[in-house]
Simulated scan of single mutants.
Amino acid sequence: MSAQLSAEDVTLPAPRQSSSPFGWGWDAMPEPARGARLPGPRFVSRELVHKSAAERVLLTDGVRQTPDSFIIAAMLPRDHCLYQQDDSGWTDPMLPTEALRQAGYYIQHRFYGVPETHKFILGGVTLGIDGTAPPSPAPWLPVNLRVICTPTAKWTSRRLCMRLEVEVSVAGVVCGHGSLLSQAVDPRVYQAIRGRKAASAPHESVPFFGCPLSPGEVGRRRKEDVLLADDGNADGWLLRLDDSNTEMVDHHVDHVPGMVVLEAFRQAALAAARPPAGLRASVVGLRSEFAAFCELGTPVRITASPQRGCLAADRMLVHVVAEQDGDEVAAGTVELRLCPDASGGQDRR
């Protein structure tokens, strides 16, 4: 299936009483007639995926198959300033991870009726890419996400906790799997969780000291996208977040966005890998759990420790941790694939 879904492509659910605690949502909306075209390929409303810029929206449409399973269509840019394929054509897993994050927002707003005023808290995310994207001169890659939602706590009108399991497919071929754990809470609950930190943050950036790593060391093209700085401490790097980089920080939040932490983990894994001469590392999978909010205004240390010998000869696992004020705020692993370096090592300068 492509990023434009037809009602004939899916099995429509029988009429039912919604499991959502909200009194409006999918059940109040008419089902598409057989043969009708669902909205697409235009992108969904930016408000439904929590983006301030419409050009950063990846989702085009979606349909409910069963009460808690969905097909979400997305269009992933093949050439993106942050997310790129490597020389061998392997898809950057950070891009479908961002699509999964947007799908979590979209599904809960569109199908479960979660108000747009609710705040979302990311608890964990995993994603693994199993293959390459098919070659094409087209600037966009149509992708389908088959998503199953499972409640992780009793749902109320003030809090909706769920796990999303996703299967990523391109042109009908499954090429990845992942999951996302999140909760949507109303403003009063969020205020209780965050306290005074829920107000406008006095610092828009994370303070850091030292020299930013070179873009090639962390798999980036632009120096403004480098999130790690060397402060002379052999134990990792400091997080370097420039709030003027709207690709990293799309809109104002009172904490470091979860996707920024994941990108820092990816960069740290690549910087720590140091593959043998003639080889380069590319990310094919990641797993992260968030123990606490990563706050603005306080330095964040990112560490990465390669775990050699635990996978196949062409794979490497890197354990990554984000610490703030001596406490672990997030941790996980990044899986790397080692492949021949077509650049001759020049990209790591």
Results as ranks from 00 to 15, higher is better:
residue 194 R to V: 09
residue 25 G to S: 11
residue 129 I to L: 15
residue 276 P to S: 02
residue 202 P to C: 13
residue 53 A to T: 08
residue 22 F to Q: 02
residue 214 S to F: 03
residue 333 T to L: 09
residue 333 T to S: 04
residue 7 A to S: 14
residue 40 G to W: 04
residue 202 P to I: 14
residue 122 L to S: 05
residue 200 S to M: 08
residue 4 Q to M: 08
residue 84 Q to K: 08
residue 100 L to M: 15
residue 98 E to D: 01
residue 247 E to L: 06
residue 230 D to N: 09
residue 325 D to G: 09
residue 304 A to M: 03
residue 191 Q to R: 12
residue 93 P to R: 01
residue 203 H to T: 10
residue 72 I to P: 00
residue 163 R to H: 12
residue 307 Q to V: 11
residue 272 A to V: 02
residue 72 I to Q: 01
residue 52 S to T: 10
residue 296 L to Q: 09
residue 59 L to C: 02
residue 338 L to P: 00
residue 287 R to S: 05
residue 26 W to E: 04
residue 294 C to D: 12
residue 30 P to I: 01
residue 100 L to T: 14
residue 262 L to G: 02
residue 44 V to L: 09
residue 23 G to I: 04
residue 64 R to V: 10
residue 109 H to A: 10
residue 100 L to Q: 12
residue 265 F to D: 03
residue 347 D to K: 11
residue 95 L to H: 13
residue 252 H to R: 14
residue 186 D to K: 11
residue 322 A to R: 03
residue 317 L to T: 04
residue 76 L to M: 09
residue 70 F to S: 03
residue 3 A to H: 07
residue 99 A to P: 02
residue 46 R to H: 12
residue 35 G to S: 12
residue 120 F to C: 08
residue 85 Q to K: 13
residue 325 D to V: 14
residue 268 A to G: 02
residue 39 P to F: 11
residue 286 L to N: 00
residue 348 R to G: 01
residue 193 I to H: 13
residue 24 W to L: 06
residue 59 L to A: 01
residue 121 I to H: 08
residue 227 L to Y: 00
residue 132 T to L: 15
residue 276 P to R: 01
residue 341 D to F: 12
residue 258 G to Q: 14
residue 327 D to V: 04
residue 271 A to F: 10
residue 267 Q to C: 06
residue 288 S to V: 11
residue 32 P to Q: 06
residue 197 K to P: 00
residue 258 G to L: 13
residue 132 T to M: 15
residue 190 Y to V: 09
residue 271 A to D: 08
residue 305 S to V: 05
residue 111 F to K: 06
residue 236 G to A: 06
residue 198 A to N: 11
residue 32 P to F: 11
residue 140 W to S: 09
residue 195 G to D: 10
residue 310 C to Q: 09
residue 110 R to D: 14
residue 110 R to N: 11
residue 43 F to H: 13
residue 94 M to L: 06
residue 325 D to A: 15
residue 323 E to K: 12
residue 218 V to Q: 00
residue 215 P to T: 01
residue 217 E to Y: 03
residue 105 Y to L: 15
residue 43 F to C: 10
residue 298 T to C: 13
residue 203 H to V: 08
residue 257 P to T: 01
residue 123 G to C: 14
residue 284 V to N: 01
residue 106 Y to C: 05
residue 52 S to C: 03
residue 167 E to M: 05
residue 346 Q to H: 12
residue 142 P to M: 15
residue 111 F to A: 09
residue 62 G to T: 02
residue 233 N to L: 07
residue 327 D to K: 02
residue 197 K to H: 10
residue 166 V to M: 08
residue 234 A to Y: 07
residue 17 Q to L: 07
residue 341 D to Y: 10
residue 244 S to E: 06
residue 249 V to P: 03
residue 313 A to D: 15
residue 217 E to F: 01
residue 306 P to F: 00
residue 226 V to K: 05
residue 26 W to N: 07
residue 278 G to Y: 04
residue 308 R to Y: 00
residue 122 L to D: 01
residue 61 D to S: 15
residue 238 L to Y: 04
